[in-house]
Design a protein around this nucleic acid. Structure first.
Lengths: 217, 217
DNA sequence: CGAAATTATGAACGACGTTCATTTTTGTCT
DNA sequence: AGACAAAAATGAACGTCGTTCATAATTTCG
């Protein structure tokens, strides 16, 4: 029977992924060591390379799990609110919460770099779509004149902006700034941007009936 | 005479910084090797550690130079336009241009991490202020009701958002997205946000006289 | 000029990711 | 069950890092 072989192979991969996840959680991506991971998983150093091509591939799998969790958290939030503005604010808030509650794993999503020359596999790139997919529907309501490619571009831009705010604030590269209420700042930002969308371009006349099922601070 | 000694020491430091800058430019921060840098600078491997505590300190000095150049580029842009909206758009455009023209050096500003436990020295943290200082004045005009700490927080938030858009777009983590006109997307973003600021909070009545010396796409 | 102090040198060290000859385990057939 | 081939696990060994340190070269100053 060759199924038993595959099962043990899968078991090893699972143990390695879990060990790597735990190490990243406690020591960050930079603190991930092949020797630690294999010791935690209860296998020899070389066994890692029978289960994965290299450490990069292992990190990719950990990041997959993180993206799945993040996707679930955002899905839960997107289902809640009805109005576009409330939905976008709820998503931003959920993104911030996830980043705070899963600092190291979340950081690893964006800090990780493949060995130079090796591209990120497409199956993993595709998983990053969860970060923007929930933004498309609310944006489509706010910007009915845009076609699909334009909407996707706006969704990516909005995600990037929110991501930037969360990232820069959770590191702290700026001194001389009073400690900020990050959540308030982020929600104000999203609300302001939505107000800008509602008051710009061809939507100027229609913007008024967009009533807020408000979640403002 | 002890001045000659200091001069040669400064000369060595300068050569090392320049060599490191060139290496980062061509191979990125991850491609920086102590052996390469010292070979390029024409000194022994160990000499690096008589001039700097470690590679981190050397990188910090390279980043200082990058921040000074970036500061000059932004300064030049901020002096140009008069209206807040035009000024903020010009700054965003200049930031994008700098990131594009100095990819690796710009990346190093945000990718670099000190050895765990060692804090970034304050003299270097302070240099990051150039990234937000030019945003404060235009924002103060747009948001006359805000006090200084609040304005600084908004400036950091705006910078972070623009930075996020530039960062996420210059990497490419998202597949299935039509190639975007990044500059157009970024300028639309800033214009939309300014429109949102002008239409929100206590400024609702005053927002009207804010006339646009427009630079819209 | 010559002794003392300072600085430059690159071999050596320890930590790391990865490889590979060897051993151990597994699957299959008689 | 037993034996044998195929597969997988093992951990010592390798090459590459950043960093250190005993030694050599140089500089400083009475």
């Amino acid at each position: 029977m060759t199924a038993a072989r595959d099962a043990r192979r899968e078991d090893l991969r699972g143990r390695l992924i879990e060990a790597a996840r735990a190490r990243i959680q406690s020591a960050g991506l930079a603190g991930l060591r092949a020797r630690d991971v294999t010791a935690d998983a209860g296998c020899a150093l070389g066994a890692l390379y029978t289960a994965f091509a290299d450490l990069d591939e292992l990190v990719l799998h950990v990041n997959s799990i993180t993206l799945a969790k993040l996707g679930a958290a955002l899905q839960h939030e997107a289902a809640g609110a009805a109005a576009p503005r409330a939905k976008l604010m709820a998503l931003a808030k959920a993104y911030l919460s996830f980043a705070r509650d899963n600092r190291m794993a979340w950081r690893a999503l964006f800090e990780h770099r493949m060995t130079p020359g090796v591209p990120v596999p497409e199956w993993h790139l595709a998983e990053h779509a969860v970060l923007i997919q929930h933004l498309v529907d609310p944006l489509a309501t706010l910007l009915p004149a845009l076609d699909r490619p334009e909407l996707l571009a706006r969704a990516r831009t909005l995600f990037s902006a929110v991501h930037g705010i969360v990232t820069v604030s959770l590191e702290d590269r700026f001194i001389g700034l009073a400690p900020t209420d990050l959540e308030g700042e982020l929600l104000t930002f999203v609300a302001t941007l939505v107000a800008g969308i509602e008051s710009t371009s061809g939507n100027r006349r229609r913007a008024v009936h967009q009533e807020s099922a408000s979640t403002l601070p």
